[in-house]
């Protein structure tokens, strides 16, 4: 297929095509002079140019890599909770619970490539898991004592002690351990209140992260 010869094209079409690179300053002298000359006589192209600048600003501010990375991580964070809660049969002891799932996600090499926002979250969550996992997690699978932790929660950095107390009261949760280095807490909630408490915490403005860590037995 033959390409149109630009030199035979109307100046308007030629200038209009070059506008994006005119706006980014990527035209050579000759091209720029042609576009300059046309812009001085064409209001429509001047309007187009302002749209071009808006598009450039939007693309500079846009982060598709964060969008896609976050969507992926978010779907994985949500999936195990929903899946296990509605599971018709009790999970086998070897079945990975949401805590393990989360750890698996956080330790995947793919996560390393996520941009700053996610990275900050991942680092925080990773620190929580590292600092809290060993003692509590190992006892969860065996004999759940009344004070066994079955949830992990992280409050917003600006939440006051009063806020935290209110959130815990509302969810009927008590603190088993914490705060960790990353300011996370292990909570215990009575098994019959577990689903309600989790929903309450996850929709609580003061709560940044709330996840079950007991294999989601309800």
């Amino acid at each position: 297929m033959s390409e149109p010869n630009l030199s035979e094209r109307p100046p308007h079409d030629e200038a209009e095509e070059l506008l994006p690179w005119y706006a980014t300053g990527q035209l050579d002298e000759a091209d720029r002079a042609r576009v300059d000359a046309h812009l001085s006589t064409c209001a429509s192209c001047r309007k187009q140019l302002s749209l071009e600048r808006q598009l450039i600003d939007e693309f500079q501010a846009m982060s598709p890599e964060i969008e896609s990375g976050w969507a992926r991580l978010q779907s994985r964070l949500n999936a195990p909770v929903a899946a296990v809660q509605y599971s018709p049969t009790p999970p086998r002891p070897t079945r990975p619970n949401p805590f393990a799932e989360m750890w698996a996600i956080l330790s995947r090499p793919a996560v390393a490539g996520l941009a700053i926002a996610q990275l900050a979250f991942v680092v925080a969550a990773g620190t929580i898991l590292l600092s809290l996992s060993r003692p509590s997690y190992q006892t969860l699978g065996s004999a759940p004592a009344p004070t066994s932790a079955n949830m992990i929660v992280m409050f917003r950095a600006d939440a006051t002690i009063e806020d935290v107390r209110r959130s815990l009261d509302a969810a009927g949760a008590s603190i088993v351990d914490g705060p960790s280095l990353a300011d996370a807490y292990l909570l215990h909630v009575a098994p019959q209140r577990r689903a309600t408490a989790l929903a309450k915490l996850q929709s609580d403005d003061n709560v940044q992260l709330a996840q079950p860590i007991d294999g989601a037995r309800s």
């Binding site: 005119y22 980014t24 812009l39």
Partner: peptide, 13 residues
């Protein structure tokens, strides 16, 4: 006359 006031983009620079 030049309409290319804000030409230099940080990334390009």
């Amino acid at each position: 006359m030049s309409w290319s006031g804000i030409l230099q983009r940080p990334k390009a620079e």
